[in-house]
Design a protein around this nucleic acid. Sequence first.
DNA 1: GCAACATAAATGCGCGCGCATGAGATGTCA
DNA 2: TGACATCTCATGCGCGCGCATTTATGTTGC
Lengths: 137, 137
Amino acid sequence: MHGHGNVPGMDAASEVGVDVRWSETLRTYHAVSNELEHELQAGHGLGLSDFELLKALCRCCAPDKGTVLMKDLEAEMYLSQSAFSRTVTRLEKAGFVERAACGFDRRSNFLAITDAGSERYLSAAETHRAVLDKHFG
Amino acid sequence: MHGHGNVPGMDAASEVGVDVRWSETLRTYHAVSNELEHELQAGHGLGLSDFELLKALCRCCAPDKGTVLMKDLEAEMYLSQSAFSRTVTRLEKAGFVERAACGFDRRSNFLAITDAGSERYLSAAETHRAVLDKHFG
DNA sequence: GCAACATAAATGCGCGCGCATGAGATGTCA
DNA sequence: TGACATCTCATGCGCGCGCATTTATGTTGC
């Protein structure tokens, strides 16, 4: 049953190790992301992708201007282009983010975080850190 | 900005460490699960949850009988009860799994893997291992 | 200048997920 | 026994996701 391969000895052991690493990743991911999702939603009205986008926006934008090109921000995230676009729409409707036209390329948009977005992110980040500390600390 | 807490010194460093562990989990999870999803779907017509259910079914059932109570199998998986139920329905329609009534509690169902399910799982497991080896090996 | 191709973002679509609820079977207790 | 809680599983519903396509621009080669 076990061992489809041709190299005997520590082959099976290393394969088991790979399995263990993956199943621990799965376990950790589901436990933490489920709790993050619930806590962020209940406490701050944010989904995990919403939070991650705000986090990346705070991290990537110039400290003075607070603005990034959407495509650059998208590259920082684990989301498809369409999911990213809709997350931006969601956050814009909530007033946490603003699209701004780019002067030299009218296909592109800048993205800026609003004051409300900044405040919401900062309070959500405390919840976020608390959950992470609980699981990893 | 950093450090909302009360213990100075290595506080900030440990918090960063927690962040890094979580973001690495996120990165690994997305990279591996996306590739697993694509490879399993393209090569064997199975989603990741389908595969994980077959895997748990092979692992949990008695070696001779090949059958488990649905609720027991559900407890082994990172799926809600409804998602689990629908995954079973999907796999049953595909002919990889069979529901069987439980004699002494008519609420319950046994779940059994079929020969076709076993074959499909075994070939998919090779793809699965290859992807895992590529990322972790 | 213009046709062909490339890029940024939005949108139509189907799918799998979780939550809430429903349907049916079983357990409990007066 | 009858009323009611509990358990197992299925289903209605809305949501966020990725894929494919569309729309609007830019860019390149002739």
